[in-house]
Amino acid sequence: MDEFVFFLNKAVISGLIIGSIYALGAVGLTLIFGILRFAHIAHGDMMTLGAFVTLVLAGAVSLTGVQSPVPLSLIAFIPAMAITAVVAIGIDRMFYRPLRERGSRPIIIVMASVGVMLMLQGLVRILAGVGTRNMFFDQPKDIYRIALPGTPRELVLTEPQAVLIGFTAVAVIALHLFLTRARLGKAMRAVSDNPDLARISGIDINHVVAATWVIGGGLACAAGSLLSMDVVLKPDLSFNLLLPIFAAAIVGGIGQPYGAIAGGFLVGFSETLAIFNWSVLLRPFAGVLPAWLEVPGNLALVPTEYKLMVPFVILIIVLVYRPTGIFRGRVL
């Protein structure tokens, strides 16, 4: 039973946490891919930028001497989402829109997003340094311990993890309502399905593009901030975030927000289950198993240092066997 609780803590809760992060990142990515039709390579660094904005906001508020019952970062990430959304629109206006209007091939815009990625990376590291930073500088994060019957071990959930799970649930529902009920949300889906038809039926493409960046930038900021709160703010996550969220978006089918959410959790759980040491679960049965079957010390499917291989292998398998993704996205 102890081992099972260990499994819940190490595999199920971790998978849920990292899956939520990937889902939030992948939703933005898949919307941008579907509506603007290019792979936004800078998305991982937009997440880092969002976390950095949160840290700066929280730091600025704490300098004014405001006392708050909860850690400041947990509040600051909400306005930071708005700031990151505005930054995302600004980046689009400055770097992507001129290329789009000139009629450049999509791959040129992908290249521009590589440039933007490097600029964001450089900027955050110049301003925040290359080391790690603690988002909870004002007070430690609460840790909730949930007692389970029949075992002294407890389920462990930290404050940012609880907020993350709640936020993801709210964001998914809000996104669903927005895309199915709101006029702008329906317009976004229309542009994603058929941009020419959408344009001639009178949809203002510029509004749709702006809305895409608001959602993409805002969710990226939330995901980056909450990830940094769960561990620490690392300015060099970049590709370690980018690959999983791309895998998630492609698994879910490009242009399919629900697919991206499912893909995010799929990639997140695959990662944690692949690096989980399964021999922990076998140890209680050591007495029952036949003598020749010795439980090895380490039974992880993938060594921890090769964690990045998991999303990549998923990506390759999907590209080979089902490039449209599980939810039948567009073959782009």
Partner: peptide
Amino acid sequence: RADYLAIATLG
């Protein structure tokens, strides 16, 4: 699509 090559080579 060309974008996928970018992601795959990056990874």
